[in-house]
């Protein structure tokens, strides 16, 4: 009896200790997340203050007055709305086309293997690891000889090509999980490969398409290198290159810089908020891009 009571007390003690350690963990986590979020908070803070205030009192304090002037200035000119529009067109088009291409190649590599297809697949997937710098010079030279030079079409072409490794890999893996019997049944019914892909396979990989859409949208929207190098014409510039360009003449326009950062981040933040599940799934599935 006493032994049992002793065990009971020990168990209760342990539980109490666990409760305490859980509470401590909780406090530590809250502290950690607050510290972690401080830099993000700074951008918000700068976007609602006047430059005058910042240069006089510094940024990191409760502002005397909250102003939306910076946002009005950012969106008021013609540049920024135009950059945003270019970003939307490039991102949406390149995302859609790269996924469509990935459906085609992923399907072939998963179901229509031929001699040498394994090597071809490896060559495509290796592209995941290529730092884009290694193709910049020839690409720039190549585009300069075409009529699409210095237009947003260049950006779309590059993003589709560089999107192919991830879309191919992810979709190949997804297609491989679909039972082969479905395809065989369709063949017996007289369907050709085009019909099988469109009517049987694609409807079954819709979640994969959602995953890829969120990933591709985020990466393409956030890209800076390609527009920075390939676009000289201001009318074809995207928002990320635009922000960096505007930093020069507006060196001390801290508020404007803050507002631009917030505006440029909104689309990907919204995608993240609404499609978080897909986004995370994509990152953990074929995660090889940042």
């Amino acid at each position: 009896m006493t032994e049992l009571a002793g065990a009971n007390i020990a168990a209760r003690e342990r539980e109490r200790a666990q409760n305490w350690s859980r509470r401590a963990l909780y406090v530590a986590l809250i502290a950690l997340v607050v510290v972690y979020s401080v830099p993000t908070f700074g951008v918000l803070l700068s976007s609602v203050q006047r430059d005058r205030e910042i240069s006089r009192h510094g940024l990191w304090r409760i502002p005397d007055e909250i102003t939306l002037e910076n946002y009005e200035r950012a969106l008021g000119g013609t540049n920024v709305p135009n950059y945003l529009l270019n970003s939307v067109v490039v991102t949406v088009t390149a995302t859609a086309v790269s996924i469509a291409f990935g459906v085609l190649t992923g399907y072939v590599f998963s179901r229509l293997a031929f001699r040498g297809s394994e090597i071809l697949y490896l060559i495509v997937v290796a592209g995941l690891f290529f730092p884009p710098q290694i193709v910049i010079i020839p690409l720039q030279q190549l585009f300069s000889r075409t009529i699409i030079n210095d237009t947003i079409l260049v950006l779309i072409v590059v993003h589709v090509a560089f999107g192919l490794p991830i879309t191919t890999m992810l979709l190949r893996n997804f297609f491989s999980t679909i039972p082969g019997a479905l395809r065989e049944a369709a063949i017996i019914d007289g369907a050709n490969e085009g019909q099988i892909l469109l009517r049987v396979m694609v409807p079954l990989v819709l979640p994969a398409l959602a995953v890829l859409a969120t990933l591709q949208f985020t990466w393409i929207w956030n890209d800076f290198l390609w527009p920075f190098i390939l676009i000289k014409n201001d009318a074809a510039r995207t928002i990320m290159a635009g922000i960096v360009l505007l930093k020069g003449p507006y060196d001390k326009a801290w508020g404007l810089q803050g507002a631009l950062s917030v505006i440029a981040s909104l689309p990907t933040l919204l995608i993240f908020l609404f499609f978080q599940r897909y986004f995370i799934r994509g990152l953990t599935f074929g995660a090889v891009k940042g």
Binding site: V33, Y36, V38, P39, T40, G42, V43, L45, S46, I54, S55, H57, G58, L59, W60, T218, W221, N222, D223, F224, M240, I243, V244, Q257, G258, S261, A264, S265, T268, L269, I271, F272, F279, I280, L283, G290
Partner: peptide, 26 residues
């Protein structure tokens, strides 16, 4: 914690400029 992954490096750079700015950075 994973929110910053969705933000462009360009904006991350801006964010950290407000940390490292010599006169009034955090």
């Amino acid at each position: 914690f994973y929110l910053p992954i969705t933000i462009s490096m360009i904006v991350i750079a801006q964010t950290w400029q407000w940390m490292y700015q010599p006169d009034w950075g955090l």
